[in-house]
Nucleic acid binder design. Sequence first.
DNA 1: CCTGCCCCATA
DNA 2: GTATGGGGCAGGA
Length: 994
Amino acid sequence: MSETPTPPSAGTLQRPVAAGDHVFLVDGSSYIFRAYHALPPLTRKSDGLPVGAVSGFCNMLWKLLKEANEVGVRPTHLAVVLDHSATTFRNAIYPLYKAQRPDPPEDLRPQFSLIRHAVQAFNVACVEQEGFEADDLIATYADQAVAAGADVTIVSSDKDLMQLIRPGVVMLDTMKGKTIGRDEVIEKFGVPPEKVVDVQSLAGDSIDNVPGVPGIGIKTAAQLIETYGDLESLLAAAGEIKQPKRREALIANAEQARISMRLVTLDTAVPLTVPIDQLVVRAVDGARLIRFLKAMEFSTLTGRVAAATGVEQSKVDPDFALAAASARTGEAEAGSSPGGEPLPEGSLAAASVALAETVAGLTPSALAAARADAARASPVDRSTYETVTSLEQLVGWVRRASERGVVAVDTETTSLDPMQAELVGVSLAVGPGEACYIPLAHRGAGDGLFNEGILEGQIPLRAALDALKPMLEDRAVLKVAQNLKYDWLILARYGIEIAPYDDTMLISYVLDAGRGPHGMDPLSEKWLGHTPITFDDVTGKGKARITFDRVAIDRATAYAAEDADVTLRLWQVLKPRLAAEGMANVYETLERPMIPVLSAMERRGISIDRGMLSRLSGDFAQAAAGLEDEIHKLAGQPFNIGSPKQLGDILFGVMGLPGATKTATGAWATGASILEELAEQGYELPQRILEWRQLTKLRSTYTDALPSYQHPETDRVHTSYALAATTTGRLSSSEPNLQNIPVRTEAGRKIRRAFVAAPGTKLVSADYSQIELRLLAEIADIPALRQAFRDGLDIHALTASEMFGVPVEGMPSEVRRRAKAINFGIIYGISAFGLANQLGIGREEAGAYIKRYFERFPGIRAYMDETRRFCREHGFVTTLFGRRCHYPEINSKNPSVRAFNERASINARLQGTAADIIRRAMIRVAPALEAARLNARMLLQVHDELIFEVPEDEVDATVPLVTQIMEKAPEPAVALHVPLKVDARAADNWDEAH
DNA sequence: CCTGCCCCATA
DNA sequence: GTATGGGGCAGGA
């Protein structure tokens, strides 16, 4: 590359400016605005991120550095100078200065920090300084350069910089491709550069809100300055001016003109934090630059840079933190299906490789391995954590986060319940060991009566959030959290919507579901070999537990900053594994997008009829009390019916009823099936006990518990969904568990009736019909079953007919019931033992059923064999959408453990695929409703059912929309050979809607 | 006060 | 036979 000589000083950080040098000062801020308006809009192809200004900026910078530029000289020193903040010393002079400047347009905003990344990628100095405008920095650098005998080119067309032009200093308008020198300034202002400020202080500037003298514009100002020499001379001689209006205006606004002079005059004495010597041009690192350009998807420039630097671009991956795959929140599909079928959406195939910040030649798995090694190598050192107590400190951390492009975030609050929690502090980590805690609402460790006030030395909460919000919402800064849904809910209540984001818990879940817990402490142990301070350590536990706002700030810093530190390290270890193990697609399409979906559902909650539950509770209690008397009478003595131990003694010890069996621990078994057996034989006591158990269960678990979960402000019940709790991909619900609300018995359904629609709305319940059986037909590839579903037949009756040779017409219900049990048994990984239990028949008979079933449906036996074989070989099974469910004990020497894992793995493919499908539907519902301008809100998910709250007059429009989304949810990733069927209904309560 | 066990509610 | 969460009891701290 003889055309692109390495600067003589390459590799050194600084070299004094000397005669013959050429200093280029790029006015970054004004360039960005200009490029935005002048260039055609450009968005990144794969996700629509606006990048027009970034593109223009990169092309300009490349030209300056490597190709012929208009000045015909290459810089020895170069800096991109940016405005740091809206407030500068000029606001002290004149508060209205730039006060009415509108916010930058929406699609320009995210480009600012991208341009900072660009400057870094070019290995060019980026200068910005608190309290000064870019123009002042440029003025100061220009002065120093000229003093040292160097030439200066200011890359800008901003008229405010024209005052700096003099021998040795020119401006360069790269977009118009022309230089601006003395002549051009005279053309614009009518005066030479040294008198530009005089003209500007008279003419003012409406855009920057420089007042000037009313009625005097550039032309008149130039004329006056031409005549009188400068502003002061003019003001001194104002009385002599002939035109009365002009005379009066000048006299009346003399002071205003002087203020304007101070506003427009650039400060050439800024105390520079980056000395001019450090602006020396450094060698471009081709790979680094290409990483950035690829992430931006600037293919033309990437090609040029590759050619000029000799870097093979195919060996460089896009910058992981900036690439579309990381920035998106999961709206797109994957590049290819797990089965290898090509899909219409292709963008993610390349992007998932981009997840790793690979250097050229390092494969994703090599990177993942290297990261895992490195994680254990650098120990966690809590002593380096910083407590952030001033806004200046905080701004520094925010800036660092923006520069790095990745930051781990954790919130500390007053409660584990995100619906009740108040923010107490925030911790950040920008690199391993580089972490801080920002206490915001810590109180004294008082007894609750005294020391109530917020401790001093904390940044006011609002100010801190205002400082954090732009970074937390900046699309160029990836936020990493552990169990983000919690922090998302907290921050949402403070008006912050984090984007883009990663969740280490979900990454771990995608990679290792079934291989252990995904909480931070176990993950830290597993991957970092480090034991973090536990929450209990800091807050105590049980009765002695204190809320986090009472934790001493230094202690809180150690705990909270460590959490952020550990989270970032976990992310570094786990994230590369996604690409290496081909799981990025599952994470991005099935996990990450669920965070906002579930957050919204939890935040919304569901309405319950408290009075109805209270009445039910009384009814149940009364009925149970009656049964209790009866039971004691039948038993011949009072005892605790709720104690299985005592009950077993009465039934089998005292009364000597038949069919006694023992549990694993040697106690009498008193489960429902045993009591039912006895009841059928005519014993009255077991029947009464079953009734008593049902009533007391319904009362304690539901009618009494549910009202206690009503939120004090919303008056609704807000469950919590766990995304990483099951091996199969199902969600789980807790506090309260709304996925096990009774439905089978009449008494139970009364509880369901207490889940009601808000006034003016209906509850709509939409559930998949026999989804797992349909997926069995699909996955096991059973043509007869597939066809039966396509024909809309009664699948259990058909199974019975095939197995027992009974015609479907007039089939006895008992025959159909048996076939139904077998179908369910298949889904559960059938065993003769289990089927026998379910049907109340002998093991041999059950075994014969299974044998006959497999004879009739050999494909299903093949499916089960293949699943077992695959799981034994790999330790996991996959769903249709590529989710992996791990069964590490599948090869256990213990036959019953092994058999259990085989059944679970057979079930997991079906249950897991169904879970994937409803997740896909859930992710699509909100955008579809919005597009249709419907106001329905998803409230609950119960594995194969979604419950919505729908304005009454929108029910008719909402039901088909939701049904359609659910039935088509597998598409386009997977084209099923069986139809999915969804039943939906609207009513005033959940029971009638279901 | 915590833990293991039993039992039971759902899909 | 699969997947969960939770309440009450009983035993050990």
